[in-house]
């Protein structure tokens, strides 16, 4: 399953990576080389095999509904690239995405 340049660009948008044309070309080659190796997995007859999402077969790992201390706001904002002292500051939002909760 070879990946086209157009697909590379689409995947880069999904992953939010601004790639140069050179990167797009190189990544296309590299991904195709890796996929060439990985693609063997598609030919395996795995009909009826249950998928393993997790190595251990444990279930119901939960936490009781008890409040714990929060971070101070100072620590919460400590690594923020831009802040007004109370919140994270971001530039304007245009274009697609969001609000799907």
């Amino acid at each position: 399953m070879a990946i086209s340049e157009e697909q590379v660009r689409h995947v880069a948008l999904l992953a939010r990576l601004a790639l140069t044309d050179e990167q797009v070309a190189n990544l296309g080659d590299e991904l195709n080389s890796i996929l060439g190796h990985i693609d063997t997995i598609q030919n395996l007859d795995l009909e009826g095999v249950e998928p393993t999402a997790h190595p251990l077969e444990t279930v119901n790992s939960i936490r009781s509904d008890v409040v714990k201390p929060c971070l101070s706001r100072e620590l919460a904002l400590k690594n923020a690239p831009d802040t007004d002292g109370t919140a994270f500051v971001i530039p304007q939002i245009v274009g697609p995405g969001g609000g799907d909760a």
């Binding site: 409040v67 714990k68 201390p69 929060c70 971070l71 706001r73 919460a76 904002l77 109370t86 919140a87």
Partner: peptide
């Protein structure tokens, strides 16, 4: 996480890692 649920509050004071 163990942060309290509630409406309002000073921004970014009910947060944890």
């Amino acid at each position: 996480c163990g942060c309290p649920v509630g409406f309002g509050g000073e921004p970014n004071t009910r947060v944890c890692p």
